[in-house]
Amino acid sequence: MAFDIAVKRVYEVPDKADGQRVLVDRIWPRGVSKVDAALALWLKEIAPSDELRKWFGHEPERWAEFQERYRAELDGNEAAVARLRALHGDGKVTLLYGAHDEAHNNAVALAGYLRGKG
C-alpha cells in the first residue's frame, strides 16, 4: 500500500483533507499556537540532528547531500519512523514544517524517504 502522504507549511490553515497532521521539526515554529497547528503529533525526534540542520542551513546547493545524510539518520532512527508509519494506518498523513523554502526542507526529504521505503 502506498504511503498517502502530503507536505505542508505549518503556517497554512489546517484542512480536513490533511488527515493526521504531524510536525516534523525539532524546534516549535514561531507565531503558531498549539491549537492553531491542529496536530495529531509533534514528532521532533524524527527531525534531522542539530548538526545536520545547521550544516544544511537551507542552502539549495547542499540539498542532494542533505537528503543522503538525512536518509542515513532515518535508517538509524527506526523507532521514530515506525511511530510515523503507525499513523499511516489511520489514513493520510501530512508532514508539517516551518521553513520558508517549500522545496528544500526536512519534511520534503522525509516524505521522499517514506515513499521510497514503501
Results as ranks from 00 to 15, higher is better:
117 K>Q: 15
88 H>Y: 02
12 E>M: 01
78 E>N: 00
70 Y>R: 07
5 I>G: 05
7 V>Q: 10
35 V>A: 15
109 A>G: 14
69 R>E: 12
42 W>C: 07
85 R>G: 08
26 R>W: 00
28 W>A: 10
27 I>D: 02
108 V>K: 04
27 I>V: 13
52 L>W: 07
97 Y>R: 02
41 L>P: 02
21 R>Q: 10
48 P>R: 15
54 K>T: 14
55 W>G: 10
17 A>H: 06
111 A>C: 02
40 A>M: 06
59 E>R: 15
31 G>I: 00
39 L>H: 09
55 W>L: 09
13 V>A: 15
21 R>V: 11
10 V>R: 06
32 V>P: 03
30 R>K: 10
70 Y>F: 13
9 R>P: 14
32 V>M: 14
108 V>R: 06
81 V>S: 04
50 D>N: 15
115 R>T: 07
9 R>Q: 14
95 L>M: 00
13 V>W: 05
41 L>R: 14
98 G>M: 05
55 W>F: 04
67 Q>S: 06
42 W>G: 08
80 A>W: 03
34 K>R: 10
91 G>A: 11
55 W>S: 09
22 V>A: 05
45 E>F: 00
66 F>L: 13
42 W>P: 06
28 W>I: 07
100 H>Y: 01
103 A>Q: 12
29 P>I: 13
42 W>A: 12
45 E>N: 07
33 S>V: 03
99 A>F: 03
99 A>V: 03
49 S>D: 07
17 A>T: 10
98 G>I: 06
33 S>Q: 02
17 A>E: 11
12 E>R: 01
49 S>R: 04
83 R>P: 00
109 A>W: 10
75 D>R: 15
14 P>V: 08
61 E>P: 01
76 G>D: 13
80 A>E: 06
50 D>P: 11
42 W>T: 06
94 T>V: 04
32 V>A: 05
41 L>M: 13
116 G>R: 13
88 H>C: 08
52 L>P: 12
118 G>H: 12
57 G>S: 12
58 H>G: 04
21 R>A: 10
68 E>K: 14
